[in-house]
């Protein structure tokens, strides 16, 4: 079953094409890494899919329906740098924000919401930090708070923008185990990812893009030197050395 269908999605920013007619489908229960060079339009694609940025043309369907009716089933983890970490609030409060969509207008968060948030914090090993002011967290801790905030939404489909960027080893492990747990429970996750070396270990599906879709499919079929050099152009040279010119997955 497809949870996401994208057909000929294009978008532009001030007359420059950022996404050029992307078409792909994502199956339920997959863990997909979205890979491409800087400026390939990865974050833009997420935002466009979620309707946070206007599209030029194309159709997007979630669970076979329009975005508007399915918003509650979709979770989004923006880049860590997208928010102001000096905002006067604590960890628990940020995680509870993940429930604001469900709580709805004119209602205040209650005990059961606090409990859900605490459970999510437990999954990312951040319970001890619940009352900590968010500006006092390390980068990795901030990322785990963001992840907990996504978990409380209990969405069926998650989009995460560079959750692994600049985090410590412990955070990396936590995120990975949470992602695999989500996958096992039948959730679908799409992750914008930067570090090519970890791709085969992390994801079972890979989507390679550079404004256009280069390739999309199971990691062992798509994450090849051939497709990668198509994605990165000349910049892929270092990989040849790094992987001794061999198939990176077979390493």
């Amino acid at each position: 079953m497809n949870v996401l269908d994208v057909r000929r999605l294009s978008t532009a920013y001030q007359n420059k094409v950022v996404l050029d007619s992307l078409s792909f489908s994502v199956r339920k229960g997959t863990l997909t890494g979205i890979i491409g060079p800087n400026g390939a339009g990865k974050s833009t694609m997420l935002k466009t899919l979620l309707g946070l940025q206007p599209k030029l043309q194309g159709e997007v369907e979630f669970f076979g329906k329009k975005l508007e009716t399915e918003k509650k089933r979709i979770g989004y983890v923006p880049q860590r740098g997208a928010v102001d970490w000096d905002f006067p609030t604590n960890v628990l409060d940020v995680v509870m924000m993940g429930l604001y969509g469900q709580i709805g207008w004119l209602r205040i968060p209650g005990k059961q919401h606090r409990q859900k948030a605490m459970e999510a914090l437990d999954k990312v090993a951040m319970t001890d930090y619940a009352t900590r002011q968010i500006s006092q967290l390390s980068g990795g801790q901030q990322q785990r708070v963001f992840l907990a905030r996504a978990l409380v939404q209990q969405a069926d489909l998650y989009f995460m923008d560079e959750p692994f960027a600049g985090v410590d080893a412990k955070t990396e492990q936590t995120i990975m185990s949470v992602l695999h747990e989500l996958k096992e429970q039948g959730h679908t996750v799409l992750v914008v990812h930067h570090d090519l070396q970890t791709v085969p270990r992390y994801f079972d599906q890979v989507l390679l893009m550079n404004k256009k879709l280069i390739a999309h499919g199971p990691t062992e079929k798509v994450f090849t030197t051939d497709y990668l050099s198509k994605t990165y152009g000349g910049a892929i040279q270092w990989l040849e050395g790094g992987f001794n010119g061999r198939h990176p997955v077979k390493q």
């Binding site: 923006p78 609030t89 604001y100």
Partner: peptide, 16 residues
């Protein structure tokens, strides 16, 4: 709570 979330993380708010 809407002021809080649209101020702290407008993208998340919009996705809701």
């Amino acid at each position: 709570k809407e002021w809080k979330i649209t101020t702290f993380d407008p993208a998340l708010a919009a996705s809701f």
